[in-house]
Design a protein around this nucleic acid. Structure first.
Lengths: 199, 199
DNA sequence: GTCTATAAATAGATAGAC
DNA sequence: GTCTATCTATTTATAGAC
């Protein structure tokens, strides 16, 4: 795990060309390709080409294909967990759930590729980066579970958290992948109605 | 697409050895391996070995690796959709939703590997079998959506269906993958409370 | 209809120039 | 620190024996 010494970072892919945003370009390209085709179906050649760098640079910066993917998961997890924690901070009950669903949808909209990777990998157990993906899952679910435990002690925290997270994630991806013309508000309304209001 | 002429079919994997359950053994082995490692990370050699047949038999029976996976998806979809339709049949409102969640959890419990494959592939767009997986999604969501449309016309059918399906699927897989000692009843209670009861 | 052996292509990874 | 060229292993797929 190297340190990132340059805080500039344009971060977009395609022709990183000249500088140290090489790492960022590679990560962006990896998420984009893996979200669409899966990790094993994505070659390091593909990643290098999409990132606008040579294959050797991928190995110089990340060591191996598996290590690269672990970095992708770890960085994505950091962003996601921080956003969820910030959204829930200081809130309880319906207010907290509403904020969490809202923020998770924002994250899905802002990082749709990572969301796809997450849903594709989260329940697999036979892969090298199993521990990394499990950490993403644990920490994300935990934010929901803590809110549930604090506000509705009679409910099962972890299973309820999984249900809420799953409802938001699947509805959010359904929206992005198949109904992209809809607004976020439609999705938020549908999820919150499902999770918060009685039928 | 060949016809299956033998209705006997022990259907279990490992040492199909002697007869025409070769196809069934291959499919079972494929779902098991792919659910754990993903499609591209699973080689035809692995599949043949797990199924107890030679690699040549895989190609003789299915033509290609991609065609084999399409068959897996199509067969799984047929089972899942039929079960959901049967569960919802003649019911409406909360009763129908309860029956659908219950049946979906039963299917996840009965075919956990297919459930994992489904969640891993359902939002990918860059794969050969895109159309097959889209059909699974469409038909499964449709059962939920029809119930919603018929009973709660003010709600968005497709997004609400996605939320309900996602809540059940993710909670169900959370259960099987990480809390297998719990009973189905716990999961059903948690999902139904989340989806049907107000917070 | 299933097997073994092999062909042809592609993958991850490394060496060394710049 | 990034590039090009190459090595080696693995993979999908096929041919032909049984």
């Amino acid at each position: 795990m190297q340190t990132t010494e340059d805080p500039a970072a344009p971060a977009q892919a395609s022709t990183a060309g000249s500088r140290r945003d090489t790492r960022a370009a590679i990560i962006t390209a990896t998420v984009a390709l893996v979200s669409d085709r899966g990790f094993s179906a994505t070659s390091v050649d593909d990643i290098a080409e999409r990132a606008g760098v040579a294959k050797g640079s991928v190995y110089y910066n990340f060591g191996s294909k598996a290590a690269l993917f672990e970095t992708v998961l770890t960085e994505g997890q950091r962003t996601l967990t921080a956003a969820l924690r910030a959204a829930a901070d200081g809130r309880t009950g319906r207010d907290a759930v509403g904020a969490l669903v809202h923020e998770l949808l924002e994250q899905i909209q802002g990082h749709p590729d990572f969301a796809k990777v997450l849903v594709a990998e989260v329940f697999r157990t036979g892969r090298d980066w199993q521990d990394s993906i499990r950490q993403v899952r644990d920490e994300s679910f935990a934010v929901f579970a803590e809110v549930v435990a604090a506000s509705w002690p009679q409910r099962d925290p972890s299973l309820t958290a999984a249900a809420m997270f799953g409802a938001t994630l699947v509805a959010g991806l359904e929206w992005l992948a198949f109904q992209p013309d809809r607004g976020v508000a439609d999705v938020r309304r549908a999820v919150l109605a499902t999770v918060l209001d009685p039928l």
